[in-house]
Design a protein around this nucleic acid. Structure first.
Lengths: 205, 205, 205, 205
DNA sequence: CATGAATGAGTCTTCATTCAT
DNA sequence: CATGAATGAAGACTCATTCAT
C-alpha cells in the first residue's frame, strides 16, 4: 500500500540515509576525515557500525556523500536566489551573500568543504577531479554573470574566469572568518565589504 | 674545538635537521599528513626511522617544523622585499608578487601550507593557534601598509585588517592556481590582476 | 487436500530445499566454504537471505546438506550398478567407473567433496565424524567385494580394508584429474588403467 | 664483527623466522587457513602481531611459507634417499617410505599440505599454480624412475606420468591413515602394501 | 648519536545470523 | 512462510613510537 508514491520501507530508508549523512557530516567536520571513525558516526546516527555499510560502501563514500549533498545544496540555494535578482550587480551581491549565509547555517558542511580544499593538493587525482568539478560549477555561474557585466560595460574587460575564482575565494575566506568567529559583525557588512571591493575593483571606470 | 661558535656536533646536527625537514616537507606535501609515513621520510632523508625521533619528538612535530620553516622563509622574503619598496602601492604589489613567487618556487612547502588551512577547522585547538599566529603575522605586515595608505588618503577608509585578509586570500588563491598549473601565464599578469582589483577596489575615489 | 501423501506445502518445501541445495552446491564449489556467502547462495536460489535459515539452521548445515546429498547420490548410483554386475572383477570395475563418471557429471558436488577431504584434518571432530562415516560406507561396499574375491582366490589374501581405501583413493585421484582437465582422454582408459593396476596388483598370482 | 659469515642480527632474524614458520605451521594445521588468526600465530611464536608482518607481508604469505618449506623438505629428503637406492625397485620403495615417514614426522606440515589439495579446486588460479608446481616435482622424480623401469622391462609399458600420480596419491592416502591414527601398524607394512600393489600392478608379467 | 626490530593500539570492513514486518 | 534491514563480533593489517644494541 504505497502512499504518495513511497512505501513505508522507502520512507524509513530515506530517513536512515538522512540521519547517516548528518551524522557523518558532523563527525567528519569535527575530526577531519582521518580522525573520524565509523564507530562514532554509527553511534551518533544511532545504528550499528555495519549498518553504515548498507548505505555507503566505504568511509570515503560516506564522506563524499556528506560533502556532495552540502555542495549541491549550496549551489541550489545560490542559483535560486540569483535567478530572482535582476541586475548584474544584484546577482553578484546575491552570490556572495548566499554562499556566506549558507556556510554559516551549515557549519558542519562548511568545515568539511573547506578542509577538502586543503586535501585537494595531496589527494589522489580521482577524488580531486570530482571535487573540482563541483567547485568549478559555482565559478561558472558567476563567470556568466561577469561576462554579462562586461558586455554591458558595467565591468571592465577582465578575464572573467579569473575574476570568478577570485570572488569565490574572497567569499569563502569571509565565510571562514565568520564560522571561526573571527568576524562577529553583521553579515551585511561582510557582504558589503567584498562586494564593494569587487565592484569597484572590476568597475569600468 | 668550537669554530665560529659551533662545535662539529652542532654543525652535523644542523645539517641533519635540515635534511630531515626537507624530506618531511617533500613527503608530507606529496601524501598529506595522514598518509605520510615516518618510514618514507626517514628513507628520503637517508636515516633510520628512529633517528627522526632524536630530532623531533613526534610526527606532528616534524610536520610542524617543516611548515614553520617554510612560513618563516616566506615571511622573511616578503618583508625584505617590501622594505625596499618605497610607496604603499609598491609595497602591496611586492607583497603579492613575493608570496606567489615564493610559493611557486617552494611547491612542497606550499602544498603543506595550503592543506593546513583545510586542517585548521578540524584540528585540535592548540595546533590551530600556532598556525593562525604565523598566518596573522603576514596579515599584520600588510595591515600596517594599508593603514599608511589610508592615512595618505590613497586608500579609502576601510577596515584595514579585513582588507589585509582579503589580499592574503586572493594571493593564496592565485598561488594555488599557478602551482596546480591551471594558470600558466606570466607571473606578472597574475600579480597585476590581483593588484588592480585591490587597488581599484580600495582606491580612494 | 493431500495428494500422493503430500500436501501442497510439503511439495513447495521440497522444491525450495532442492533449489537451495543446488544453489549452495554451486556457490560452495566455486568459492569454497569460507569464501562463499549466504547472500550469494540466496540470490542464486532466488530467495532472500533469511529464507535459507528457514530450511537450514546455519551455513555449515547448508554446506553439509549439499555434500551429503551428493555423496548419497554417488553411493546409490554405484551400488545400483554394482548389483547388476555379476563377477568380482566386474564389480570392481563398475565401482571405479561409476565413481569417476558420477564425479564428472556432478562437478559442483565433486569440488565440495574433494575439498572436504582437505578440511577433514583441520575441522572440529564432530564434523569429521559425519564425513568419515559416509566415506567409509563406500569403502565398505568395496571391501565386501574384495573379501569375496579373496575367498574365491581371485585375489591374494591382502588386508581387504586397506585395499578398499587404496582403490577409493586411486579412483578419486583419477576423477580429480579428469575434472581439472589434466586428463582429457576417454573415461574407459582411465578406468582400465586403475583397474589393471589394482587387479594385477592384488591378483592371486 | 661477523662470525661464520653471519652477524648476530642475522642469526636472530633467522631464528625468528624459523619460530614464526613453526608457529604458523602449527596454527594453520590445527585450524585451517581461514580459522587461524594472526594473533594466535603471534602468541605461539612469542611475538606481537605486527612482528609477523615484518617477515611475511600477509597471512597468505605466512601460510605459503609454512607449506613451501615443508614440501621442499620432503622433496629434499626423498630425493636424497632415492639417490642412494640402486635399483628401480628400491627407488620406488624408498619414495613411498620417505614420503610416509616424513609426513608422520612432520604432522603439522602434513595437515596443511593435505588440506591444500582440498583448496586446489576452489582457490584462485595463481595460488593453485604455485602449489601444483611443487606437487608436480614429486611426480616428476618418480616418473623418471618409472621410465627407467619401463626401458629395463621391469615395468610394463604404461603411461609413466599417470602411474607416477597414482603412486603419489596412494602414498598420500597411506600417510593420511597413519597421521589420523586409522592405521596404527608398522610403517614397513604400509610401505610393503603399496609397493606390492604397485610393483605387481605395473610389473611386466 | 644512530639504528631498525619489535610493539600493540587502533580501524575499516565483512558477513553469519536475527527478527520485526 | 518469506523478507531483507540491522546487528556486532571478529580479524587482517598499518604505523607511530620505543628501546636494546
Amino acid at each position: 500500500m504505497p502512499i504518495l508514491g513511497k512505501t513505508k520501507r522507502e520512507v524509513v530508508t530515506e530517513f536512515r540515509m538522512a540521519e547517516l549523512v548528518a551524522a557523518a557530516r558532523k563527525v567528519f567536520s569535527e575530526r577531519g576525515f582521518h580522525n573520524a571513525t565509523m564507530e562514532e558516526i554509527a553511534q551518533l546516527a544511532g545504528v550499528a557500525k555495519g549498518t553504515i555499510y548498507l548505505y555507503y560502501p566505504s568511509k570515503q563514500a560516506a564522506y563524499w556523500a556528506a560533502m556532495e549533498q552540502g555542495i549541491l545544496g549550496m549551489l541550489e540555494a545560490t542559483r535560486r536566489n540569483m535567478d530572482v535578482a535582476g541586475t548584474v550587480e544584484a546577482k553578484i551581491r546575491t552570490f556572495i551573500e548566499c554562499k556566506i549565509s549558507y556556510c554559516e547555517q551549515n557549519r558542519d558542511f562548511f568545515k568539511i568543504y573547506y578542509s577538502e580544499f586543503g586535501h585537494s593538493l595531496t589527494q589522489p587525482l580521482r577524488l580531486r577531479k570530482q571535487f573540482r568539478e563541483l567547485y568549478a560549477q559555482q565559478a561558472r555561474i558567476l563567470k556568466e554573470v561577469l561576462e554579462e557585466g562586461i558586455r554591458n560595460q558595467e565591468i571592465r574587460p577582465v578575464a572573467a574566469d579569473a575574476a570568478a575564482f577570485a570572488i569565490c575565494d574572497l567569499t569563502r575566506s569571509a565565510a571562514t572568518q565568520r564560522v571561526l568567529g573571527w568576524d562577529k559583525g553583521e553579515l551585511r557588512n561582510a557582504v558589503d565589504f567584498i562586494f564593494d571591493l569587487v565592484w569597484k575593483g572590476l568597475g569600468s571606470r
